[in-house]
Structure formats: C-alpha cells, structure tokens
Design a protein around this nucleic acid. Structure first.
Lengths: 148, 148
DNA sequence: TATTGTTATACTCTATAACTATA
DNA sequence: TATAGTTATAGAGTATAACAATA
C-alpha cells in the first residue's frame, strides 16, 4: 500500500515535469518558427545556417552530429538552402568522399544581419527574467538533460 | 562601450538558455518517440490518446485546444487513429456540427496498459533525480514558460 | 570492408484556404 | 454570419534502406 502510494506520487511528479518541459518547449518553438517565417526559414534550415555561421564550412557528417539531423534528411535540407542561394556544396580535396557545406555571401549576410534580429525578437519575450533567473533555469535544464 | 558589453553578455546568456532548452527537449523527444515506436504511435497520435484518456470523449475543438494541433491536421491524425481502431467518431446530438472523439475498447486498453509502461520507460531515465530536484526543475521551467 | 553522401519510398505533420452542414 | 469539421494542396521533415564513389 505504502509502496504503491509512493510510486504513484513519484510517477505523477515525473509526469508533471515532462508536461512542463513539453509545454515550455512548444511555447518557445511556436515563437521561434513564427519569427523565422518572415525570413522563409524552417527551424531545421535555420539550425543549419546557425551551425555553419563563423566556420569555414562543415561536412554533412559534422552538421548531422551538431544538429541531430540524419544524413538522408540533411541532403534535402541542404538542397533547399542551396536553392535559396544561402549555402553551397564544395567538394573535399583530401578525402573526396566528403562534401563541405559553406555559407554563401547571401547566407553569411543572413547569419550576420538577420540572426541577431531574430535573437533580439526572441529575447524581447524574455526581458522579464533577470540574469540570475536565467542562470538558475539554465542550470536546471542542464541537470535534466544530463539524466537523459 | 559598457552598454555594448552588457548587452552582448545578456544576449549570450539568453542564447545559452535557449540552446539548453532545445537540447533538453530534443533529448527527451528522441527518447519519447523511440519508445512510442514500438506501439506504432507518433507523438501527436500519442498526445491525442493521452488527452482522451479518462474522459467521455472530446470534440475536435477541445482536442485541438489541449494539444495545440490545428483542426485540419487533427482530422488526419484522428483518421489514422481510427484506422487503427483506437478511437471512433461519435456524432453530437445537441449540436450536430460537433463530433465527439472517443477511445475505443482497444484505445482504452492502450491508454490503461501501455501508457503506464511508456511512462515507466521514460521515468527509468530519470531515476537519478530526487523528488526535490524534479520540483526545482519544474518550477524553473514554469517560470520560463510564463514569460513566453 | 567501411564510410560519405545521394537517391528512392512511403508516411506523417504543417499551414492555408476553400468548402459543407449546421447554428 | 459564425462555428465545427472536412477536403484539397503544397511543402517539409522523418525513417529506412539500397546505392555509388571513395577510402
């Protein structure tokens, strides 16, 4: 009897935590993709652009590891970015199996000019939080992620 | 100069927070959908089943409000669940524009038997957290969500 | 043989808007 | 006129697996 009670209580507190994580992420995600829409970018596309920023280009494997997009999907995402002239493929010299994906001039401009704007837009919804609160929340999330 | 420094610092701490939220959610999300796959359920489908559990059925509008799935999409999700005999549509009597979505016997079994298993599976990855830590993280997430 | 990236397939979800049937 | 749900369309991401080129 006691065991069941304790178990249920811990299960419920766990579910409440999961629900909170999902709701919080969804709230953020909607804000994020709404903001990105005006630049005609999806979240995965923005993720790739963001990852490529301040690099000399990355291979598909590297981008995949950083963004958690699998290679088959990544080919499609990069295709769409290339069609918009935001990135280009550059064949590797040493290992000719590798393809480097690089930001174009236009892609770099997007990263340098538009991304800060997007971040400011997101941040404007955060101004009620003090730096201290931000740190506390961040630490909590990190702990949560580490147990996964 | 000072202003720029402060602004950059706060921008960076904000970005670190966002990155943490996204990573944490992705870690959870992968675990979640990996676990659901063995029951042939996608996350939106599981979300609907979960929402319908312990109710006498809900209308499309209600489900949409609770799961944040828009009506056009929801029709498709419910179609697929109906094809799997997990839910059924029931025409409303009072207002004949409304359709009630109800769990079938099979859907109820899934909710009652399989869902607890899935939750236990998720929870097994959480056992390193004390109830106190769970509460702390939950409070942090709630504060974060409220500012969105 | 193993790795890199592409291609192909089938499915699911998303946004948007026009449509129907009720109210 | 407004609301509930369906239908249609186009696009984007996902999983999976087979494939070609290279190592």
């Amino acid at each position: 009897m006691t065991t069941i009670t304790v178990d249920n209580a811990s299960k419920q507190s766990f579910m409440a935590l999961v629900r909170e994580l999902v709701w919080t992420y969804q709230a953020f995600s909607r804000l994020d993709s709404d903001g990105l829409r005006q630049y005609r970018l999806t979240q995965p596309q923005a993720d790739v652009i963001f990852t490529l920023g301040n690099t000399d280009g990355l291979t598909f494997r590297e981008i995949g590891e950083l963004t958690l997009i699998t290679k088959g999907t990544l080919t499609g995402v990069v295709d769409r970015l290339e069609k918009k002239s935001l990135v280009k493929r550059r064949q590797g010299n040493e290992d000719r199996r590798c393809t480097r994906v690089v930001l174009t001039k236009k892609g770099n401009r997007l990263f340098r000019d538009v991304f800060p704007k997007h971040i400011a837009y997101l941040k404007s919804h955060f101004d009620q939080l003090s730096n201290n609160e931000i740190l506390t929340i961040q630490r909590a999330l990190k702990k949560l992620r580490q147990v996964f």
